[in-house]
Measured scan of single mutants.
Amino acid sequence: NQASVVANQLIPISTHLTLVMMRSEVVTPVGIPAEDIPRLVSMQVNRAVPLGTTLMPDMVKGYA
């Protein structure tokens, strides 16, 4: 099972991601792979992401 990136807190819209905001967890459905966490740092979310939500490629500007 592959770990995905999950929000560690509420991430407001247009926030630049930091390591503190993300954790890796095995979830269904599978989202952005956990090994991409370093790549996600300083990218922006294009919507509010609630605590515990799996980050999907379409939620992060410039990821997909």
Rank of each mutant, 00 (worst) to 15 (best):
I11G: 00
A3M: 10
Q2T: 13
S4I: 01
Q9V: 11
V60R: 01
T15P: 00
Q2N: 14
A48P: 09
I11W: 02
Y63S: 03
I13T: 12
A3I: 07
L19H: 08
G52P: 01
S42D: 13
V27H: 04
Q2H: 10
T18W: 03
I11R: 01
R23V: 05
G62P: 05
A48I: 14
P57D: 05
V41Y: 03
N1I: 15
L40S: 00
R39G: 08
S24I: 08
G31Q: 00
N46Q: 13
S42H: 11
S24Q: 08
M59N: 05
G52W: 04
A64E: 11
Y63E: 04
P50S: 13
A48Q: 13
L17I: 11
D58S: 11
E25A: 13
L55Q: 01
T54A: 06
A7T: 09
R47A: 07
M21W: 02
A34F: 07
M21R: 00
L51K: 12
P29F: 04
S24K: 10
Q44C: 12
T54P: 08
S14G: 12
V20M: 15
M59I: 05
V49N: 02
Q44I: 11
T18D: 05
D58T: 10
S4L: 02
L40D: 00
S14W: 15
Q2P: 14
G62A: 08
M59E: 01
V20F: 15
D58I: 09
L17V: 01
T54V: 10
V49T: 04
V60S: 01
M56C: 13
T18V: 06
N8V: 08
V45K: 00
V5S: 03
V60P: 01
M56A: 07
S4V: 02
P29W: 04
M59D: 13
K61N: 12
L51C: 11
L19A: 12
S42Y: 12
N8W: 04
M21F: 03
M22A: 00
I32K: 00
L19I: 08
K61D: 12
E25Y: 08
P57S: 08
V27R: 10
Y63I: 04
V45Q: 00
M56L: 11
A34Q: 07
S4G: 04
V45C: 06
A3W: 10
P38C: 14
A3E: 12
R23E: 04
K61R: 15
A64L: 14
H16A: 15
N8M: 06
E35P: 07
G62F: 09
L10E: 15
L40I: 10
P29T: 05
L17T: 00
I13C: 15
P57C: 10
V49M: 05
H16V: 11
T15V: 08
I37C: 05
I11F: 02
N8S: 15
Q2F: 13
T54G: 00
E35M: 10
I37L: 13
M21C: 04
V20R: 14
L19T: 07
T18S: 10
V6G: 00
Q44E: 11
G52T: 03
L19Q: 07
V20C: 13
V5T: 06
I11P: 01
M21N: 06
G52I: 03
Y63Q: 03
T28A: 14
G62H: 13
R39N: 09
S24C: 08
V60Y: 02
P50E: 09
V49L: 08
P33W: 10
P33G: 06
A64H: 13
M43N: 04
V45R: 00
P29L: 05
I11K: 01
V30A: 11
M21Y: 05
Y63K: 03
T18Y: 03
R39C: 12
V26G: 05
A34K: 06
Q2V: 10
I37N: 00
T28V: 11
A3T: 09
N8C: 11
I13V: 14
P57A: 10
V41H: 03
Q9K: 10
L17K: 00
L17G: 00
A7C: 04
L10R: 11
M22V: 06
Q9L: 13
S14L: 13
E25V: 10
A7E: 01
L17F: 01
V6R: 03
E25S: 09
H16W: 10
P50C: 08
P12I: 04
P33D: 06
M56Q: 13
M21L: 05
M21K: 01
M59Q: 04
K61F: 13
V27M: 07
A48T: 15
G31L: 02
V27C: 06
V26R: 05
T18F: 03
I32T: 01
L55R: 02
V30G: 08
I13N: 12
A48R: 11
R39F: 10
T53Y: 15
G62L: 08
S24M: 09
T54K: 04
V6M: 04
L19D: 05
N1V: 15
V20L: 15
M43D: 04
P29C: 07
V45T: 11
S14V: 04
T28F: 11
V26C: 11
M21Q: 04
A7I: 04
D58E: 12
V30M: 14
V20T: 14
L19E: 06
P33S: 09
T15K: 06
N46P: 02
I13Q: 13
M22I: 08
S42W: 14
P33N: 09
A64Q: 14
L40W: 03
Y63C: 04
D36R: 08
V41K: 04
Y63A: 03
V5G: 02
P50L: 14
G31D: 02
G52D: 11
N46T: 10
S24N: 07
R47V: 12
E35I: 10
A3L: 12
L10S: 15
T18N: 05
P12A: 09
G62Y: 09
V5Y: 02
A64N: 13
P50A: 12
V6N: 01
V6S: 02
N46G: 06
L55D: 01
A64F: 07
P50Y: 14
V26A: 09
S4D: 03
L17P: 00
S14H: 15
V30H: 11
V41R: 05
R23W: 04
S4H: 01
P33A: 14
V6P: 00
I32A: 02
R39E: 06
R47L: 08
Y63R: 04
H16R: 14
P33R: 10
R39L: 10
N1Y: 15
V20P: 07
E25H: 07
N8E: 07
S4W: 03
M22Q: 00
S14A: 14
N8G: 06
R39V: 08
M56K: 08
V5C: 06
V45D: 00
L51S: 13
I32Y: 02
D36C: 12
P57I: 05
S42F: 15
T54W: 03
V60T: 02
E35R: 07
A48Y: 11
K61T: 15
P29Q: 05
Q44L: 07
S24D: 06
